[in-house]
């Protein structure tokens, strides 16, 4: 099922991010997905060699999750594939019944574990969205007809509401919408007021937006993100909150509370929530419980 249908139905769409391992043992990932996510989120984003670190492929992992009765979102970046490979993988996804896409430009190669690799960036997020839209219309990006019935996807992209230059973000968001983007997941949000202000401006595009959350595990992680992660800013009082009760923070409870609170504060302005747990999948049910979001009936 395409998650755009859920948005259309007016559902508050819940998604969570999982990262394939470096290796082919997916047991752990599958077990966690069943145990913590299956009845709590509608779909699972599968990252594409996240942070430019080489791992098992997103598409194959999506297929495994789908076979397990879960709804995967295939994340595709432009870093490692030229337009031929990108379109080919999109068609492959359709072949495997994977209908949800999140289309990204991708981190630069030198940030990961193969800094010597050739960066591709033949297309970027906007032209990739366009390419997928063209495939849906029955043509590839070079204008050649695609045989048979064209595929249909839910085409998603990302945006950073708490970026230090929101105006530039909005300009690009508009380009993505015009190119055919149908839903957005945001970068991690820690400042509800910025998110709300952003959403007031983004409303004009008429495209659903999921509030992005990164569970703040500890002070060090927050400081690191403030220094290095684009579009993310953890305010000082939140860092103080994490510092206040060290034991509680260590147990992960402060982070869970913060996330739940952020959901509550932003819920009315967003069309869903996307949680990037970075290995803390087991805490997602608690967050949602605390935020007052009930379990869901799984869709496939």
């Amino acid at each position: 099922m395409r998650i755009t249908e859920l948005f259309q139905r007016g559902e508050f769409v819940l998604t969570a991010e999982v990262g394939p391992p470096k290796g082919v043992e997916l047991d752990h990932l599958i077990k966690d997905a069943h145990e913590y996510l299956k009845t709590r989120v509608h779909a699972l984003n599968v990252t594409d060699n996240q942070s430019s670190v080489m791992r098992t492929g997103s598409l194959a992992t999506c297929k495994v999750l789908k076979d397990e009765g879960l709804l995967p979102i295939f994340q595709i970046t432009c870093r490692d594939r030229n337009r031929i490979a990108l379109q080919s993988d999109v068609l492959s996804a359709a072949l495997l019944g994977i209908e949800n896409l999140l289309l990204l430009t991708g981190d630069y190669t030198t940030l990961g574990d193969h800094p010597q690799a050739k960066p591709v960036f033949d297309l970027d997020s906007v032209s990739l969205i366009h390419a997928v839209k063209r495939l849906e219309e029955g043509f590839d990006i070079a204008g050649n007809a695609v045989d048979g019935a064209p595929p249909k996807f839910a085409k998603g992209a990302v945006v950073s509401p708490c970026s230090d230059s929101v105006d530039v973000q909005l300009a690009k968001m508009e380009a993505k919408v015009k190119a055919g983007c149908e839903y957005f997941q945001t970068q991690g949000v820690y400042e509800p007021e910025k998110f709300i202000k952003f959403m007031e401006q983004a409303k004009q595009f008429g495209v659903p937006v999921q509030l992005g959350l990164i569970i703040p595990k500890n002070v060090g992680m927050c400081r690191y993100m403030n220094a290095n992660v684009a579009g993310v800013h953890v305010p000082d009082d939140m860092i103080k909150e994490l510092q206040a009760d060290k034991e509680k923070t260590k147990a992960g409870d402060t982070g869970v509370e913060i996330c739940a609170r952020l959901i509550k504060e932003c819920k009315d302005y967003a069309q869903g929530v996307h949680i990037m747990s970075l290995g803390w999948e087991n805490r997602i049910p608690e967050i949602l419980d605390m935020a007052g979001i009930a379990p869901i009936t799984p869709v496939v």
């Binding site: 430009t105 960036f121 970027d124 906007v126 970026s163 230059s165 684009a230 579009g231």
Partner: peptide, 10 residues
């Protein structure tokens, strides 16, 4: 990139 920033800038 030709269609705007990647979002990676800080």
């Amino acid at each position: 990139l030709l269609n705007g920033q990647c979002g990676g800038a800080k």
